[in-house]
Deep mutational scan, measured.
Amino acid sequence: MATGGRRGAAAAPLLVAVAALLLGAAGHLYPGEVCPGMDIRNNLTRLHELENCSVIEGHLQILLMFKTRPEDFRDLSFPKLIMITDYLLLFRVYGLESLKDLFPNLTVIRGSRLFFNYALVIFEMVHLKELGLYNLMNITRGSVRIEKNNELCYLATIDWSRILDSVEDNYIVLNKDDNEECGDICPGTAKGKTNCPATVINGQFVERCWTHSHCQKVCPTICKSHGCTAEGLCCHSECLGNCSQPDDPTKCVACRNFYLDGRCVETCPPPYYHFQDWRCVNFSFCQDLHHKCKNSRRQGCHQYVIHNNKCIPECPSGYTMNSSNLLCTPCLGPCPKVCHLLEGEKTIDSVTSAQELRGCTVINGSLIINIRGGNNLAAELEANLGLIEEISGYLKIRRSYALVSLSFFRKLRLIRGETLEIGNYSFYALDNQNLRQLWDWSKHNLTITQGKLFFHYNPKLCLSEIHKMEEVSGTKGRQERNDIALKTNGDQASCENELLKFSYIRTSFDKI
């Protein structure tokens, strides 16, 4: 039985969820670079991206490699990797027998973001014989899940209580170790020597080791999670996991709180800001991140802002960003909400898709409305799209047979046209069989910064309504002859009103 693990408890099935942008060198404390989270699957090609990484700022997932063999891993080693800020997950990587050479110096898994409450997941690794993470000293947050690894031993010899604050939620089941077939031998045991430290858990006094050649490092209890030197002297209180010299914040392997210019500090002093819960960055760093993602459509890219001495992905609820200094300031009234469309555009074809934009005031991208039916549609669209004030790209209304009016965009005031449909149009209306009105132009103002209007096959939309939009939106004169079809717009509506004058002759039985 794995020490510190839980057996036999019912657990939810383990679901495996399925960018080499360097964020800056980590400095003297770390020998390499800070790398983003990685999802490495199918083959070993991307694994080489770990070569210079000291910190993975995010998670590391290595999974679904069915053609790899043990010899493929023999020359692979990433000794610079010290810390993973989120979680480490391995799933069905064939041929991998140990992690001792792959990650010989991995010391800390912070667990800032977890995989279903777990910071370390080893699942269905069919050839893994031992973990071998002999320098792993601290899992700051989260638990361990090690399950269905039929060859995995050296679990009962690990004292997880020396690595985690609590072992109650560890789930370590259905491994070879369960069948008591392992016969784990710690260093020196074969020669009758006791080389590794022994600890007591559940009444068992057991030597602690990761492999037959690597003991588990056990520091004096007084050192807590700070770690200790090879001689057993406690590291500085700002260290986490390990250090090369005692009581020196510049000799830590990793930091308990924050890293700044080669030393570990309790908090980031001005003019620095907390970033990702582990390091200090200056304003320029946060500003660069903001600008890199301002026009990016890459998933996970955030326009970072500053709030409460932190550089964070977005302002919290009730705050909006001051564009001059990136500071989050309290909103006066309802907060603006910028919604970034991942692929640059979004099609609204149902109430469900409209709900995804609920509360958005600025759309960074283009909207395509293609709704053919739905219950209580006008009210639903207004509830979900009615706060949109600005669209950076274009607005396209296409084959939306259920629409009679666009009044559900009740606050839309600006279409920038930074991206144009077919390279020309910022407003595009095609084949809307029941569209009769755009907006009530006596109450609604709309500016279209650039781009043209396109109207074709809107049989109940009168040309007068379209011409009014040209005047109000500032697009009059931009359109070419064929942009607004004269014969297919309003051709099934009563669009022309003329005053009919009647004269009559009164007659009676005795007068003409």
Rank of each mutant, 00 (worst) to 15 (best):
H28K: 06
H28G: 01
H28N: 14
H28I: 02
Y30S: 02
P31M: 14
E33A: 03
E33N: 11
E33R: 10
E33M: 13
V34F: 03
V34S: 06
P36D: 01
G37Y: 15
N42I: 03
N42Q: 12
N43S: 06
L44N: 11
L44E: 08
R46L: 05
H48K: 15
E49G: 11
E49L: 07
E49I: 14
L50Q: 01
N52P: 14
C53H: 01
C53W: 00
C53M: 00
V55F: 01
E57G: 06
E57L: 04
G58T: 01
H59W: 07
L60Y: 00
L60I: 11
Q61Y: 01
I62M: 09
L64Y: 11
M65K: 04
M65Q: 05
K67H: 03
T68P: 06
R69H: 11
P70W: 09
E71S: 04
D72L: 06
F73R: 02
S77Y: 12
S77K: 13
P79E: 12
K80W: 12
K80F: 09
K80C: 10
I82Q: 06
I82W: 07
I84Y: 00
T85N: 05
T85K: 12
D86A: 05
L90M: 13
F91E: 01
F91C: 15
R92F: 03
G95P: 01
G95S: 04
E97T: 06
S98N: 06
S98W: 01
S98R: 04
K100N: 15
L102G: 05
L102S: 01
P104V: 01
P104N: 00
N105I: 02
L106C: 00
L106D: 00
L106F: 03
L106K: 00
T107S: 11
V108H: 13
I109S: 00
I109D: 00
S112D: 15
S112L: 12
R113I: 11
L114Q: 14
F116G: 09
N117C: 05
A119I: 00
E124H: 13
E124R: 06
E124P: 00
V126L: 10
V126G: 12
H127T: 08
H127A: 14
L128M: 06
L128C: 02
L128V: 03
L128I: 09
E130R: 13
L131Y: 00
G132P: 01
N135W: 05
N135Y: 02
N135M: 13
L136V: 04
M137I: 03
M137W: 13
I139R: 01
I139G: 01
I139P: 01
T140I: 07
R141Y: 04
V144E: 01
R145I: 10
I146A: 04
K148I: 01
N150M: 04
N150Q: 06
E151G: 07
E151R: 11
L152W: 00
C153K: 02
L155G: 06
A156G: 10
T157Y: 02
T157K: 08
I158E: 02
W160G: 01
W160F: 12
R162T: 08
I163F: 11
D165S: 09
D165C: 09
S166G: 01
V167H: 10
V167A: 12
D169K: 11
D169T: 06
N170M: 08
N170S: 07
Y171S: 12
V173T: 05
V173E: 11
L174S: 08
N175F: 10
D177W: 05
D178C: 07
E180T: 04
C182V: 04
C182A: 12
G183F: 10
D184G: 15
I185P: 15
I185D: 06
I185G: 15
P187G: 12
P187F: 14
G188Q: 11
K191A: 10
K191G: 14
G192W: 12
T194C: 07
T194W: 14
T194F: 15
P197T: 08
P197M: 11
P197Y: 10
T199Q: 10
T199N: 11
T199H: 14
T199I: 06
I201F: 14
I201L: 13
N202D: 11
N202M: 08
G203M: 14
Q204F: 13
Q204V: 08
V206K: 07
V206F: 15
V206H: 15
V206G: 10
E207S: 03
E207P: 07
E207W: 15
R208F: 15
R208S: 10
C209G: 07
C209T: 02
T211M: 02
H214N: 12
C215G: 03
K217L: 12
V218P: 06
C219R: 03
P220H: 09
C223F: 05
K224D: 14
K224F: 10
S225R: 08
S225E: 04
G227Y: 10
G227P: 08
C228M: 02
A230I: 05
G232D: 15
G232H: 05
G232S: 08
L233P: 07
L233M: 08
L233E: 15
C234Q: 02
C234E: 01
C235R: 00
C235N: 01
C235M: 00
H236W: 01
S237T: 05
S237E: 13
S237L: 06
E238W: 02
C239T: 00
L240A: 10
L240N: 12
N242W: 12
N242P: 08
C243R: 00
C243Y: 00
S244P: 04
Q245H: 09
P246G: 10
P246L: 02
D247S: 05
P249G: 08
P249Y: 03
P249W: 03
T250G: 12
T250A: 08
C252A: 00
C255R: 00
N257M: 03
N257E: 03
N257H: 03
F258W: 08
F258Y: 15
Y259S: 05
G262H: 14
R263A: 13
R263I: 08
E266S: 14
T267R: 04
T267F: 06
C268I: 00
C268Q: 00
P269C: 01
P270L: 10
P270F: 10
P271A: 13
Y272V: 07
Y272G: 03
Y273I: 05
H274T: 15
F275K: 02
F275D: 01
D277C: 03
W278R: 03
W278E: 04
R279P: 00
R279K: 07
V281I: 11
F283V: 15
F283G: 09
F285I: 04
Q287H: 15
Q287G: 14
D288S: 03
L289M: 07
N295H: 13
N295E: 07
N295W: 12
N295A: 06
S296G: 06
R297G: 08
R297Q: 11
R298M: 07
Q299I: 14
Q299N: 12
Q299S: 05
Q299D: 07
G300C: 07
G300M: 04
H302A: 12
H302Q: 14
H302V: 10
Q303V: 10
Q303S: 05
Q303H: 12
Y304S: 03
V305H: 09
I306Q: 01
N308S: 09
N309E: 12
N309D: 06
N309H: 13
K310R: 11
K310Q: 07
C311F: 06
C311L: 12
P313S: 08
E314N: 11
P316L: 03
S317D: 07
G318W: 14
M321V: 13
S323Y: 14
S323H: 15
S323N: 03
S324H: 12
S324K: 08
L326S: 11
L326Y: 14
L327R: 07
C328N: 01
C328S: 02
T329Y: 13
P330Y: 15
C331L: 03
L332F: 12
C335I: 06
C335T: 10
P336L: 10
